[in-house]
């Protein structure tokens, strides 16, 4: 299903969509950063590079209640599962973040299904946007991804000048277009060319390139190398890289009480860069040094999830590099890994 959406019609589309769902899109915050927030109709920013923050927080919430408990006078405990059924439409998701959501979807499925996240995904329509402009830290092509990938989206949009080229990908996406057909126009025969044009110009503009796909299944051989120390010496273990990573899935679980008999069981994002993340009750810590923790983050993304799910859990968005307060660059680490792997193979 191919359509055109004239740019001046965007606000009427959002207005219409807001009738039965929360619409979330990139907007400029008062801190002068682009972030995904619930929007009205005017302020949506669908141009420029990807946002500083990913839309991950609308699928895997930064903090959420898992259930409420009540202790009755008899001592019996009842629990009420937290169950969100609100519909949401997330718009302007760049292909890197779509890949991340696809990864999360697979990760939180499997033998045990994370009801909260999968339910939220079921209730979401994801509208992707072809990426026209990389940020200075972007390296998606190094992972074999492209700025116009549609994987994970229900609808894909691409900026074609005066209008957006719109493609319905899933049934859910096609239905949304169908329900709003008077806002869209029919597409012309060669509209789809905008995707290859964007791909060409955007890929050319990506500064960072290293063929990570050639390192698939080989990153593990750098486990015992000395490259980790070089970076851990300056790393402050703040965890900003993990909190801003669209594929980081770790969380901590805790209880909090509202009164003597009531409270909730909740979870919050957690980071493997924290000393306490792996601390045993006995005091023993399997990853007690910064070096081991930094290695864990990199190994997990480029080797462990390859072993577990046959895919990298990095989309090349470059946010970890962008937010690092001491300037640790993932590309630099990958280049070092490549050197270790290449030397090992000689």
């Amino acid at each position: 299903m191919r359509k055109r959406l004239q740019k001046q019609k965007l606000s009427s589309l959002i207005k219409k969509l807001k009738e039965d769902a929360t619409v979330i899109a990139p907007v400029m915050t008062d801190k002068n950063e682009v972030d995904f927030l619930p929007v009205n109709s005017e302020e949506v920013i669908l141009s420029g590079a990807r946002s500083l923050y990913s839309p991950k927080k609308y699928i895997f919430k930064q903090s959420e209640s898992m259930y409420d408990y009540t202790i009755q006078d008899s001592g019996k405990v009842t629990v009420k599962e937290s169950c969100e059924n609100e519909k949401q439409i997330i718009m302007g998701i760049r292909p890197c973040d779509l890949h991340a959501i696809e990864y999360m979807k697979e990760f939180y499925s499997g033998k045990y299904k994370d009801s909260y996240i999968l339910r939220r995904l079921e209730n979401s329509v994801l509208i992707g946007l072809a990426c026209t402009e990389p940020s200075t830290n972007c390296f998606c092509t190094s992972l074999g991804n492209s700025p116009v990938d549609t994987d994970g989206s229900d609808i894909m949009m691409a900026d074609a000048g005066s209008f957006y080229f719109v493609k319905g990908i899933t049934e859910k996406g096609k239905k949304l277009i169908e329900n709003n057909k008077d806002i869209f126009e029919d597409s012309q025969e060669d509209d789809e060319r905008v995707l290859s044009d964007i791909k060409e110009s955007c890929e050319k503009a990506i500064l960072e390139k290293i063929d990570v796909t050639a390192l698939k299944n080989k990153v593990g051989s750098a486990y015992n190398s000395d490259i980790w120390k070089k970076y851990s010496d300056i790393c402050v273990n703040c965890g900003a890289c993990t909190f801003n990573c669209p594929t980081c899935t770790c969380f901590d679980v805790a209880d909090t009480s509202r009164s003597k008999n009531e409270g909730c069981h909740y979870r919050t994002w957690d980071t493997c860069q924290n000393f306490a993340f792996t601390l045993h009750a006995s005091g023993h810590n399997p990853r007690s040094t910064s070096e081991e923790r930094l290695r864990q983050r990199v190994m997990h993304k480029y080797q462990y999830t390859v072993d577990q799910m046959d895919q990298f859990s990095c989309t090349g968005c470059g946010r970890c590099t962008q937010v690092c307060p001491v300037g640790i660059s993932m590309i630099a680490i990958l280049k070092d890994i490549k050197e270790v792997v290449d030397n090992g193979e000689e």
Partner: peptide, 8 residues
């Protein structure tokens, strides 16, 4: 259940 990542 293999989701929180702590025991990885």
């Amino acid at each position: 259940i293999g989701k929180c990542g702590h025991c990885n």
